[in-house]
Design a protein around this nucleic acid. Structure first.
Lengths: 191, 191
DNA sequence: AAAAACGTTAAAAAATAATTTAACATAATT
DNA sequence: AATTATGTTAAATTATTTTTTAACGTTTTT
């Protein structure tokens, strides 16, 4: 009797975890991670103790080098941290479970890279176009093209600057004043 | 003499365009498109008249089926539109040059998919976990694990709801009240 | 009505990326 | 000091994705 309930509970719990693991793994591709790496993160998400490479190997049924590179990738995008526990000589890893932190790091890095890289080339290009327009007696079609390019690039530059300000507000947490984090569960005893 | 200036101007203009084309192509991978498709968009960005598939084929030196599928992908993520011009029986395409629109569509779709998919599984899982916790005389370790999972999932749900609100504010344009689009060029005659 | 133009789909080829096995380097244990 | 454990790198393999060539169905022109 007792045992029967235990088994039912365990089945339910594992169902619940598997459900979420599958959907995390499915959506993680949006974060530039391969399905396997996504699944590794999703699996780690439900571990309440740190994992070794061998644990991961067993959980996912993959080779240790794969786990080694996968976990490094996850560290790179700041959603897994190496932790230390006395007594274990193996490396231990723990999933970052705060998705807001994850979000900030991930898009912060992405957008910053995009803005920086493009601003450099945009500014160089704008300079060149202004040089073109300073040349006297230039062909009317070319002048027109240069003017159109210039106008477009200035708009693009505005976008890049906007992206930079977005990154700032995400990294400083300012954005959470505009869009506060609400606790959906808090009205649970009002029903 | 005249001609010399013309050639210099043309070289400068093409340098300017190439510079930006390369950096757009390089950063487009962040938007989930292949390098070739990124380069196609970047090339179209500097065209002030619509392009046919054959134009693209010539510009990029690729096959027509590649252009056909590439341009469809770009239409899918809303950064290229099919346009109509009387007289041409070929299909004509034009790049969307407003990056803000691009940004909104792209991340709107991404985040919405993520939130929707995960919320479904999170809610199902939460239900199952509550069922587990309702079982009497459950093993203490399992109870603990269920409680931890439940707590985590509720936080995750808050994140998904936050994402949904972010999508709303991006799609409604509300976010631009919080982070206004500034014209960097407007202070050009103050120097 | 036949031929040509156009875009797309299907199959094949080429190029990339992911994964594994094997080899290696370093640190810990015996 | 020798052996074992641990994680990483390198080479080889496998799988996936991208790209092309070939074939197809429509539409337009002749």
């Amino acid at each position: 009797m007792e045992d029967e309930k235990q088994q039912k509970a365990e089945a339910l719990l594992e169902d619940a975890e598997r459900l979420v693991i599958d959907s995390i793994a499915e959506t993680m591709d949006l974060y530039g991670v391969t399905p396997s790496i996504g699944r590794l993160y999703a699996t780690m998400y439900f571990k309440h103790d740190p994992l070794t490479l061998d644990d991961m190997k067993n959980d996912l049924g993959m080779s240790k080098p794969s786990m080694s590179t996968a976990v490094r990738k996850l560290q790179d995008i700041n959603i897994v941290k190496k932790v230390w526990r006395r007594g274990s000589r193996k490396d231990l890893f723990m999933a970052e479970k705060n998705f807001f932190q994850y979000f900030s790091h991930f898009f912060g890095d992405k957008w910053e890279r995009e803005a920086k890289l493009n601003l450099t080339s945009i500014n160089d290009a704008i300079e060149k176009l202004q040089e073109v327009l300073n040349i006297e007696e230039i062909d009317v079609d070319m002048k027109h093209r240069a003017e159109q390019d210039l106008q477009q690039l200035k708009e693009y530059r505005n976008y890049c600057h906007w992206l930079e300000r977005l990154v700032d507000s995400v990294e400083s947490g300012e954005i959470f004043e505009f869009l506060p984090i609400e606790d959906t569960d808090s009205n649970r005893d009002e029903s």
